[in-house]
Design a protein around this nucleic acid. Structure first.
Length: 126
DNA sequence: AAAGTGACCTCCT
DNA sequence: CAGGAGGCCACTT
C-alpha cells in the first residue's frame, strides 16, 4: 500500500455533498501531518473514480494549485453537490465537513476488492 | 545511497 | 489577516 493509494482510499469514502481537508485525509490515511504531500497526491491523481474535488484546505477554501482550470472545476462540482460558497471563496466547513471514516481503516486494507458501500465518485453528475 | 528542494498545507505568532 | 516556520512525501541531484 503506497502513500498515494492510502490517500485515494480515504478520499473515495467522502460522501457526495461533504468535504474534507488535506490534513484530515492524510491523518485518516495513516500519515498525520502530511497535508502537503496529500495535496500533491491529489494533484497527480489519474484515477477518475476518486472525488478529489471534495478535498479543500483547512480554512474551507479551494486551493489554487494544479492546472489552471482545476479550481473552477472543483468549485463547480461542489456547487452541484450542494456545497455553498461565500463570496470570500470559503464554504461552511462546520456544515459540510465530513466526520471521517465510520469503519476502522484496517478492515478495508485487508480486503481485495473495494467494499460495495463506496459510491462511485461522480454518480448523479456528468 | 544521501542530501537537497519543492509542493493544491497547517499551525502558531 | 499576514508572515514564518514546521512536517510529510516524492523527485532530483
Amino acid at each position: 500500500m503506497t502513500f498515494k493509494e492510502s490517500i485515494y482510499r480515504v478520499v473515495r469514502m467522502i460522501p457526495k455533498g461533504k468535504v474534507s481537508t488535506y490534513g484530515e485525509v492524510a491523518t485518516w490515511a495513516g500519515f498525520p501531518g502530511a497535508a502537503r504531500a496529500c495535496g500533491r497526491a491529489l494533484k497527480e491523481l489519474e484515477d477518475p473514480g476518486v472525488p478529489w474535488h471534495r478535498v479543500i484546505n483547512s480554512q474551507g477554501k479551494i486551493s489554487g494549485g494544479g492546472s489552471l482550470d482545476r479550481p473552477s472545476t472543483q468549485r463547480t462540482l461542489l456547487t452541484v453537490e450542494g456545497v455553498k460558497f461565500r463570496r470570500s471563496g470559503t464554504c461552511d466547513l462546520r456544515k459540510h465537513r465530513w466526520e471521517g471514516p465510520a469503519e476502522p481503516l484496517e478492515e478495508i486494507e485487508s480486503s481485495e476488492e473495494p467494499p460495495p458501500w463506496i459510491m462511485p465518485a461522480f454518480e448523479g453528475l456528468e
